[in-house]
Design a protein around this nucleic acid. Structure first.
Length: 742
DNA sequence: CTAGGGTTAG
């Protein structure tokens, strides 16, 4: 290529005589043009251009730009777009059609903003715009608007189009509808749409999509009905796709079915998009049988349809089916990976979520902030601090550190992983705190039983003028309940109603019943339940039942359990708590009756298990688990610890064993609880090397394990942080942070 | 020489 360029130019060693100069130069110009037209890529063109400039050639920008526009700029790199714009700036008096072609290309490109720069140049140099200029320009505006740009330039362009008399051109009007919808001014968009003298399928499609993008799903359906009545042409596939998506978003299966019938009855041709949209509609509405039927008819399973299937199965709890479809996909994008990851999180399988996240990174798919929220939530559920630290580093290194929602999730994650100090650090260091940040931190204190800090933070929050919401109050009441701050809790509850205008919901009443019940004010708790403006539900009765278990109130406990079982016959917790109450009162016959009842109704007690992290790996233990590779060592160590503790006065408390066994067997059973196995493993692995041992349990810790852990922390001088289903216990020097109040 | 619309998660 070098030779190709230099030959003709360097062939003139000395300045030619005046007379032939003009002729010679025209020859050169021609040669250059033919050179340009021989170029095969934008990069090639750039090199030629650079050469010509270096040789002091005359302006070639106009033919160069023409040539550039022959390539699809829409798929060009940002630097190439910038280059095209630079060339454009050098074209003297560019003709409007050439500008329009540039506008069109730039508006479709990865940098729609570049079209606005071209527009600015046209305005500056008084290049006249015509009716063909506006549709591209407006498309660029709509795309920039989606990035969060204000409506200012949009209104300016609209004004210009009106001054030039183009605002009655249907193409311009359609562009305006789209641009206004993009800015979120969907009412302005609709006004223009209504003023259109002729609405074709594209105009309807744009208006429908405008409503869809702005989240006005009901308006999509309404407009679709209007379209069926008043449009000159019946709705086409594009319109139907948008309407079906709106049905999916709103879980409106009935409307979705109607559209499906409309398609079949009207003989609308099923293209790939439309079938995908139908599958998505059924999957989003949880109607997986129909989704699967349509999916099976697909010869080529496309990305969108497969993702919709993954999402649908994950949402309906059939996570393994979701995974098998996911595994069969030959192509996956951010959305499909994220759908699968969040599916695992939502069905309580954080380890698989995190494993899949790592696999996703291995496939060089970059997570976005939403994916990160799922992953942080998985890490929170897992409760493993090393893993949490790793996720935090990932967040910082990948540019998510300044996003409020991500930081809020990190606060929650660290709280749930047992590190309030790290949670607080995130809270302090984040650039902008919102009400959720304060609420997350308050909730963190609540989980750890530090009611005083929660209340202090609440005061600070109010002092900074941040208005608490109903979730904030759940955290505050929970904090009071779990720290025995009865009067403070009562005050918060009335201040919530009187000063902040928050109407208490089930959760708030539940916390209050909990608070009063724990403080042995069972009568007052019952009064509150009777005073509630809505019928008590499982949460309320559950709170009361929990309190009855603590205080051994048989009569009220039986009532609460009966109510729960009436409302939810499969509520395993109610049976378990009730039998705990009977066991505590040594009413073994009743314990047996409850067990029989459970069995006959097929109610299964959720299997208790505990996790502990060692060397970045999470080890899981079930009761009497022998599946761990170091199982025998674990039992030897456990035996050693038990002997030591018994020597110091620990006596196994067998009251919570609900199976009918003799005392010795009960003792054996209780010593094989999963949290004790996890602790023992911690002692023989690197998990026990640090200053404290961190264990997570899926259910509530039982009373014996609680006193076992306390005794351990005193005798062995090692702290334990145990997370159970609802809160944290910090065992240190023989006492627990919950003050035996949980 | 030139113009406008579609699908998937949270």
């Amino acid at each position: 290529m070098e030779a190709l360029v230099s030959k003709p130019v360097e062939a003139s060693p000395s300045p030619p005589p005046q007379t032939s100069h003009h002729h010679h130069s025209r020859l050169q110009q021609q040669q250059r043009r033919s050179l340009l037209s021989a170029a095969t890529s934008i990069a090639h063109l750039r090199q030629l251009h650079a050469h010509l400039l270096k040789l002091g050639a005359r302006d070639v920008s106009a033919p160069l730009l023409s040539k550039l526009l022959a390539y699809p700029l829409s798929s060009a790199s940002p630097s190439s777009l910038h280059y095209a714009l630079c060339v454009f700036r050098r074209v003297p008096d560019p003709p409007t059609p050439l500008c329009n072609r540039l506008l069109k290309e730039l508006s479709r490109s990865a940098e729609p903003r570049a079209a606005l720069l071209a527009y600015a140049r046209m305005r500056r140099d008084c290049v006249p715009l015509d009716r063909f200029s506006f549709p591209s320009l407006l498309k660029a505006l709509a795309r920039v608007a989606a990035e969060g740009e204000g409506v200012g330039v949009g209104r300016e362009v609209h004004g210009l189009a009106a001054r030039l008399g183009f605002d009655s051109d249907p193409f311009v009007q359609t562009g305006l509808v789209r641009a206004y919808a993009g800015y979120g001014c969907v009412d302005d968009a609709r006004r223009i749409f209504d003023h259109m003298s002729h609405r074709d399928l594209v105009a309807w499609g744009v208006m429908l999509d405008g409503y869809y993008q702005s989240g006005s799903y009901a308006s999509v359906l309404k407009l679709f009905d209007e379209m069926k009545l008043s449009s000159t042409a019946p709705p086409d596939q594009v319109a139907l796709v948008t309407v079906l998506s709106a049905c999916g978003r709103t879980r409106n299966l009935n409307a979705g079915r109607d559209i499906h019938s409309y398609i079949i009855d009207g003989g609308v041709e099923m293209d790939e998009h439309l079938r995908g949209a139908l599958i998505n509609m059924y999957a989003s509405c949880g109607s997986m049988v129909h989704a699967q039927q349509l999916y099976d008819q697909f010869c080529l399973k496309n990305l969108v349809a497969s993702t919709a299937m993954v999402f649908g199965y994950a949402k309906t709890g059939m996570i393994d089916l979701a995974r098998s479809i996911f595994d069969e996909m030959e192509e996956r994008d951010l959305v499909s990976w994220s759908a699968m990851v969040s599916g695992y999180v939502e069905c309580g399988r954080p380890q698989e979520a995190l494993a899949l996240f790592n696999e996703m990174r291995g496939h060089a798919v970059k997570p976005d902030r939403i994916t990160m929220l799922s992953v942080i939530s998985a890490s929170a559920d897992l409760g493993a601090l090393d893993n949490a630290n790793w996720i935090h580093v990932f967040v910082d290194r990948n540019g998510f550190w300044d996003i409020a929602s991500v930081n809020n999730a990190l606060i929650d994650m660290y709280s749930k992983c047992g590190s309030l100090s790290r949670a607080y650090r995130v809270f302090v260091e984040m650039p902008l705190r919102n009400v959720i940040s304060w609420t997350s931190m308050i909730n963190g204190y609540a989980m750890h039983g530090d009611g005083e800090s929660a209340l202090k933070l609440f005061d600070k929050m109010k002092a900074e003028g941040v208005e608490p919401n109903e979730v904030t109050f759940i955290g505050l009441l929970y904090a009071c309940a779990h720290s025995g701050l009865v009067d403070e809790g009562r005050k918060i509850f009335s201040s919530m109603v009187d000063d902040h205008g928050v109407n208490p919901k089930y959760e708030h009443y539940g916390c209050m019943v909990d608070l009063l019940g724990r403080a042995k004010q069972l009568g007052e708790a019952m009064e509150l339940i009777e005073k509630m403006p809505f019928p008590p539900n499982v949460i309320i009765w559950g709170s009361l039942l929990g309190a009855c278990r603590i205080h051994g109130d048989l009569q009220l406990g039986e009532l609460a359990a009966k109510k729960i079982i009436e409302l939810d016959p499969d509520h395993d917790g109610a049976y378990v708590l009730l039998s705990n109450i009977y066991a505590k009162a040594s009413r073994w016959q009743d314990v047996v009756e409850v067990r029989k009842l459970m069995k006959s109704r097929g109610v299964l007690k959720e299997r208790g298990c505990s996790w502990i992290e060692s060397n970045g790996k999470v080890h899981e233990f079930a009761i009497a688990d022998e599946s761990h590779s170091r199982s025998s060592e674990i039992y030897v160590k456990l035996d050693e610890v038990v002997k030591e503790l018994e020597f110091s006065g620990y006596v196994p408390d067998t009251h919570s064993v609900l199976v009918d066994l003799d005392e010795e067997e009960k003792k054996k059973a209780i010593l094989m609880h999963s949290e004790k196995l996890a602790l023992s493993f911690g002692l023989i692995s690197s998990a026990g090397k640090g200053s404290c041992i961190r264990i997570t349990k899926n259910l509530r810790v039982c009373e014996d394990c609680h006193s076992f852990m306390k005794a351990f922390s005193g005798v062995f001088g090692k702290d334990i942080v145990l997370r159970d289903r609802t809160r944290f216990h910090h065992f240190k020097d023989g006492v627990c942070s919950c003050k035996d109040f949980w």
